[in-house]
Write a protein that binds this DNA or RNA. Structure first.
Lengths: 335, 335
DNA sequence: ATGAAAGCGCTAACAC
DNA sequence: GTGTTAGCGCTTTCAT
């Protein structure tokens, strides 16, 4: 860092206090002085020193985000949105790909105003509460690590998916998801599906739920192939994630099953990318924009008021209809 | 931030200067005092204020990384490695997913010690040099934006791939890559391939190069299908990226082509994930560990000595043999 | 409307 | 070995 408000003050022939006020657009400075100072700052290429600023003001207008080292399309899309939203509010977001504990410690030292944890943690690896002076918000897992969290009700989302398919006349539906995954977010999808199965009295079958044993597209591909090879012939599939859906579509195409003519498909993950798949996929999940808004809003609220946020804020899932489902006049529900 | 060295000093009955020295493990403090101070700091949960530290010392021991908003497996793997490497050297890395220009500005304000740009920029979007007091290193594109860079010689990498296949007896080879991509990194792969074609006098064919029109696995899939439908019957394929390879493998499997029995396959991107594909894939590319070391080393060098780094540091590509290539006693080279 | 001065938490001379 | 002091760049009373 080279040029400081002192330099500007000297050149403008005013005090540093005035420069500071002018640069912060204080009403206490005559417009003409303000203008002059801004011009000088501009042409000298002045960059405020955030370290100094936050040392005195206790505010850095910076948010620290803890980022998981796995990359999943959905999270990236969301993070980009949240980043934009913070920018709009005059905040900058910086990420750390260190483990949560050390990332949070780092952010405390850097003096960010708040911390946002994109949580992917395996609950088994939970090592007790993490200390943080700076307020922390979690996204992804409900109330994980003891911090307040924003969470999409995946259980309800999946129920909605079943409900929608039911309303279209589907009676044989399969869920493909990472059923053995220990994360709450994955388990809730599973439960939401069975909620629907029970609510609508669907006849069960061993292949009604296919375990993808993972969340990558290739695993969706394999699961779908397994399903198609089974005796169960569902008229609709519900997929647990975007990536799985990509794989499922590939398997379907390979086996000459058209979507939605031969089989309907709904995916979890309410992201724009669903639009660009070979068939535009009908999806359920928290609306990205809505989540981003809620998250940013919550973080800013933590910063402004010192009050503690509720431990769990739920985002209502939405169903976005596209081209991958069609009504089904197929076989009648046995019950 | 609550507790400061002042508090510690008071409790320990020493001056803040001594506390500062003790905490920084200076040799000028009696071991017993040092020990006492460290204990007090520990149990009070003292966290140093980086803002204050860097304000006075002009060093934050923090590296800012500019992160592209597209996620590609290779970059993530590399970033994780680099992050670890920085940690080992007592540095923290923070990322920004803002556009390069604003990210660099942010990092200058935060007073990071150096900036690392993971470059994915379209050269057409190049908006002239970006100002930065803090030293900047680019990874990904050669000397992009006018900053010194670490770059893997992709041209040589692809040449090596052809050379290796040639040595195994292959004479009909296809390159599947994003040939229309304007980024130097993609173009160099293309050129490296043709280098090999010319060097070894391979007979050309319209389907010798298949444009994937993108870098996603689905595009690799489609390109491979197109290739298989053509009149060209190569004995080996060279793929431009990991993601393309994933798609190519899927297409091959679908068409009942076994790797390497029916066709050999080499991929660019020298990452561990190659090992876990259905067939362990022989790959060329910069070794992740080597790149990470070079990058971190270069960054630290920029910080320590004030000298400017060479504008272009090249990382030598390596060929890692796995199970996806086999020698070919097929048809003889026409020349 | 502007300036003087104090101080944020820390380090680095320099003195003792 | 330890303490004193000054000051990093900035904001913020409080005077003027």
């Amino acid at each position: 860092m080279d040029i400081t408000i002192k330099d500007i003050a000297r050149i403008a022939g005013v005090s540093t206090a005035t420069v500071s006020k002018a640069l912060n657009n204080s009403a206490l400075v005559k417009p003409s002085t303000k203008h002059k100072i801004n011009e000088i700052a501009e042409q000298m290429g002045y960059q405020p020193n955030i370290a100094a600023k936050s040392l005195v003001s206790k505010k850095s207008r910076t948010i620290g985000a803890v980022w998981p080292n796995v990359d999943r399309a959905t999270l990236t899309t969301l993070a980009t949105k949240i980043n934009d939203e913070f920018n709009k509010n005059g905040y900058s977001m910086i990420l750390s790909i260190n483990p949560a504990e050390s990332a949070i410690q780092l952010f405390n030292q850097i003096q960010v105003d708040a911390i946002l944890v994109f949580d992917r943690s395996d609950p088994n690896s939970y090592a007790g509460p993490i200390a943080s002076k700076v307020p922390v918000l979690c996204y992804g897992e409900p109330a994980s690590k003891g911090f307040p969290s924003v969470y999409v009700d995946r259980r309800k989302a999946m129920f909605k998916a079943v409900e929608y398919l039911w309303s279209l006349g589907h009676r044989k539906i399969t869920y493909i998801g990472d059923v053995s995954n220990k994360r709450i977010s994955q388990q809730e999808k599973h439960i939401g599906f069975t909620d629907g199965v029970i609510e609508f009295g669907l006849t069960t079958h061993p292949s009604m739920i296919v375990n993808s044993n993972g969340l990558e597209s290739n695993e969706g591909y394999k699961a779908a192939l397994k399903l198609l090879a089974s005796s169960y012939k569902p008229t609709a599939i519900i997929s647990g994630t975007y990536d799985l859906t990509v794989g499922i579509l590939r398997a379907l195409q390979q086996e000459n099953k058209r979507v939605p003519q031969d089989i309907s498909l709904i995916s979890y993950d309410n992201i724009p990318q669903m639009e660009s798949l070979p068939t535009a996929i009908t999806a359920v999940g928290g609306p990205i924009d809505g989540i981003a808004k809620k998250v940013v809003e919550s973080v800013l609220c933590m910063i402004d008021k010192q009050e503690q946020l509720p431990l769990l804020q739920t985002v209502e899932p939405e169903l976005v209809k596209r081209d991958s489902c069609r009504s089904c006049s197929g076989e009648i529900n046995k019950n």
